[in-house]
Computed example of a mutant assay.
Amino acid sequence: MQTARGLEYFDLYEGKVIVAGKEFIIPVHVGEQLPDILLGSLWLDIMQLVVNKPKGILTLEVVEADY
């Protein structure tokens, strides 16, 4: 995968997230040079993520896709 640091290799796992009673399968990237586990960004095609860091609030909401 191309990253800001150049070409990197990651292990790819399958994660499950339950939001509003619905289960979604998302890609999870793990690598030696990553300090944290990365949840795949493709799931943001169907969900809205809003972060209010000063208040410590993270909101994840399922949105309707316009297909």
Score class of each variant (00 low, 15 high):
L7N: 12
K55L: 14
G6V: 04
A65D: 08
S41I: 06
E23P: 03
A4N: 03
V19P: 00
Q48E: 14
V62A: 11
T59P: 04
E64D: 07
V19R: 02
K53S: 11
V51E: 06
Y9S: 08
F10D: 01
I26P: 00
L44E: 02
P27N: 06
V19E: 01
F24G: 02
D11F: 09
N52M: 07
I57T: 09
E8F: 03
K22H: 07
D36H: 15
K16L: 11
D11H: 06
D36Y: 12
V62I: 15
T59S: 14
Q48L: 12
K53W: 12
D36K: 10
Q48G: 07
Q33G: 10
I46Y: 03
E61M: 14
P35M: 14
M1W: 04
L49V: 15
D66K: 13
V17E: 01
E8G: 00
G15A: 12
K55W: 05
E14Y: 03
I37M: 09
V62L: 15
K53Y: 12
P35V: 09
I26V: 15
G40P: 01
E61C: 05
L38N: 04
M47H: 10
K53V: 11
L60S: 02
P35L: 10
E14H: 07
G31L: 01
E14C: 10
G15F: 00
K53A: 15
E61D: 12
I25W: 09
V63C: 03
L39K: 03
D45S: 09
L42P: 03
E23I: 14
L60V: 14
V30P: 04
G6F: 03
G31T: 00
V30W: 05
V50W: 05
I37E: 05
G6Q: 04
I26W: 00
W43E: 02
K16A: 10
P27G: 07
K53N: 12
Y13V: 00
E64Q: 08
P35R: 12
L44D: 00
L34N: 11
E64M: 07
L39I: 15
E64I: 03
M1E: 09
I26A: 06
V19Q: 02
I57H: 08
V62C: 08
G21A: 10
K53M: 09
P27C: 02
D45P: 01
D36P: 01
F10E: 05
L58G: 05
I25F: 12
P27V: 01
V17Q: 02
L34R: 05
Q33F: 15
E14M: 11
G31S: 11
E32A: 14
F24H: 12
I25H: 11
L39R: 01
Q33C: 05
V50Q: 05
V19M: 03
S41R: 13
M47K: 04
V30A: 14
E61L: 13
V17M: 14
Q2R: 09
W43D: 04
D45W: 02
E23F: 04
G15C: 04
